[in-house]
Design a protein around this nucleic acid. Structure first.
Ligand SMILES: [Zn+2]
Ligand SMILES: [Zn+2]
Ligand SMILES: [Zn+2]
Ligand SMILES: [Zn+2]
Lengths: 142, 142
DNA sequence: CTTGACCTTTGACCATAGTCTAATGTTTAT
DNA sequence: ATAAACATTAGACTATGGTCAAAGGTCAAG
């Protein structure tokens, strides 16, 4: 069949050679077969494997989580509910991150409207709020 | 006045001693005066300084950005509009992150509804989508 | 005077996800 | 035959924000 050196594999999967080797070290892909000259050779299917990693990463899974997903796939006792549970946990995590960011966002939005953008920094209400409103005499900054 | 050793300062500001020294190394706080025995001594106001850092961090500013904010405060040529601009950039960054996360979220939500949660992992549509729908024969995972 | 609490420094280490270098070996193309 | 392109390894380095350890000096209380 079609066997790939690490360069071809990386190109097909849209990652760098270093990344492929890094994933191998991290146990995300199997140690591949080697040629007599010690070159790694991969089956075509490994491209899909790398693309899986890419997509899962885009969906917010960490490399360790992706590793767990693979384990799940290879575990005969695992069921779909395990995968579903995982995805639901991720969903909650992301919802929380969105909530946190939204809070930060509205705090920042309130700050900007409070500042008219004219005059010296010393009078800026943004800095004022960060300083605890009217504390911090002056000039002991690095 | 009231002078603080690093331990008191850290406690008052709600950070660890290590963090204070770390901020000093990173140039976020000034090198403080020393006692004869080489202990750091801080003025009370440094507490506010550390709290500023804490608040700014909570608002999504990185330590380097906070350092820039301090520079801005101490720059006689800087104006409020500089600070406002910064805050507005942060606002855009956070809006983008929220957008990205929302896309990820709806992708994940669609995935979970597609899976009934019963049966073997091999039939799980979540895994299927990640694998590029029906690729990846079997069992070459670590 | 000794114990414990506190301080000092340098430097290593954690997780995350790679990226890059150096020195060396192999394959391919002209 | 020789150069370019590609491969190998170990290990250092990036950024972020700290955290911890070792080995020692200082200070207050009992
Ligand atoms: Zn695979
Ligand atoms: Zn302002
Ligand atoms: Zn200050
Ligand atoms: Zn499923």
């Amino acid at each position: 069949m079609n066997e790939l050196t690490i360069g071809k594999l990386a190109k097909k999967a849209g990652v760098t050679i270093d990344t492929v080797r890094f994933y191998e070290r991290r146990g995300l892909i199997n140690e591949p077969a080697r040629t007599q000259s010690n070159y790694r050779i991969y089956p075509e299917e490994e491209v899909a494997h790398l693309r899986f990693i890419k997509k899962a990463k885009e969906l917010g899974f960490s490399l360790n989580e992706i590793k767990q997903l693979f384990k799940l796939q290879d575990d005969p006792k695992a069921s779909k509910s395990d995968v579903k549970e995982w995805t639901e946990i991720k969903i909650w995590e992301i919802r929380r991150r969105i909530e946190d960011l939204s809070k930060i966002l509205s705090a920042l939005e309130q700050l900007t409207v409070s500042c008219d953008g004219h005059g010296p920094v010393s009078e800026c209400p943004i800095i004022g709020v960060l300083s605890g409103d009217l504390e911090e005499s002056k000039q002991h900054h690095p």
